[in-house]
């Protein structure tokens, strides 16, 4: 299969600051792909370059086989873009917004009406068509935005932090919608996210850190990279626990709040060994496969989310 999105040594500077540098990746047609990273990792810069809003300072990017700079119009014919803050006119109704958007893609007449109805139905907006967008909740606005982007039947759907401002139920609804769209219309879905749950469900994940691509693999491969399992030990004195584990086992570890996170050999009875070795000082010991969070920490040396979010 040909690549839906390809970049080669892509970079973008803002003044002296490099927001993105040396990013080379290839996204296959029909893939659900996540660009994962915290704020300032360069994922939004990459998103803006792919959606033709921002010109790269170095390297090249192609979407649907067309260059985002030299053939920007041809790229725009193939993409649907869902922005973090919905690109809707709050003063217009849902239907007026959809009509306006359809017209921007050259849709008209019965075809526009038919697509509008089916997109509204697919996103559960049929009874909202006459409502002003400003009267809708954030979740509903996001659904209008997605319906809008599906009207021209794009080959590549680009989404910037699609879950922002959505409650868990709306997030799940969004995920189901994206899955269905991808299945039914063979769209390539590329989303930026700082949420592991979202990245976890994608076919492949590109991890960005300080403007650089540090990994690009399936979630399973990423987890397999660590080659270890992760044990979490809780107790009243985590620092004392850490010293004990260091002395007795020598495994890499870190203290986070009241918990101790230890990278333990995969497959061994690490939980049992830790539990008996630490005795009463440890309240609980749990061992699990590494999460993407663990992988992110391992690759970048920094946690994905700030302490306040964790």
């Amino acid at each position: 299969m040909s690549a839906a999105v390809e970049t080669n040594d892509l970079g973008r500077n803002f003044g002296p600051r490099a927001a993105l540098s040396g990013v080379t990746l290839s996204i296959r047609a029909g893939e659900m792909f996540a660009l994962l990273g915290p704020n300032g990792s360069g994922k939004t810069t990459l998103f803006r370059i792919l959606s033709t809003l921002l010109a790269p300072s170095a390297g090249m990017a192609r979407v649907g086989g067309c260059d985002v700079v030299g053939e920007a119009m041809a790229v725009r014919h193939q993409i649907g873009v869902v922005f973090q803050s919905p690109a809707l006119d709050p003063q217009l109704t849902v239907e007026e917004n959809l009509r306006c958007a359809g017209s921007l893609y050259g849709l008209r007449g019965a075809d526009l009406v038919a697509r509008l109805r089916s997109a509204a139905e697919a996103l559960g907006l049929s009874d909202r068509l006459a409502d002003r967008v400003q009267s809708l909740s954030g979740g509903l606005q996001r659904r209008v935005e997605i319906a809008k982007c599906l009207l021209p039947r794009p080959r590549v759907l680009l989404l910037d932090e699609p879950s922002t401002g959505l409650d868990p139920a709306a997030r799940e609804g969004l995920r189901v919608t994206l899955e269905r769209v991808r299945r039914e219309s063979e769209v390539t879905v590329v989303m930026t996210t700082h949420l592991l749950e979202e990245a976890e469900r994608c076919d492949r994940v590109a991890i960005l850190h300080r403007g650089r691509l540090v990994a690009c693999e399936t979630p399973a491969e990423l987890r397999g990279r660590l080659g270890t399992d992760v044990a979490v030990v809780s107790g009243l004195e985590p620092e004392a626990l850490a010293t004990r584990v260091r002395e007795m086992f020598g495994w890499p570890l870190s203290v986070r709040g009241e918990r101790l996170r230890v990278e333990v050999p995969a497959g061994g009875d690490a939980a049992g060994r830790l539990f008996s070795a630490l005795g009463a000082a440890a309240d609980t010991v749990t061992v699990g496969r590494p999460t993407l969070e663990d992988v992110f920490l391992d690759l970048t040396g920094e946690p994905l989310r700030g302490e306040e979010e964790a």
């Binding site: 033709t52 809003l53 725009r76 922005f83 690109a87 921007l104």
Partner: peptide, 15 residues
């Protein structure tokens, strides 16, 4: 339009 986001939706359209 730039602040509300409407403009960016127009800019990414093939117009």
């Amino acid at each position: 339009d730039r602040r509300d986001g409407f403009l960016q939706g127009v800019l990414v359209a093939p117009v």
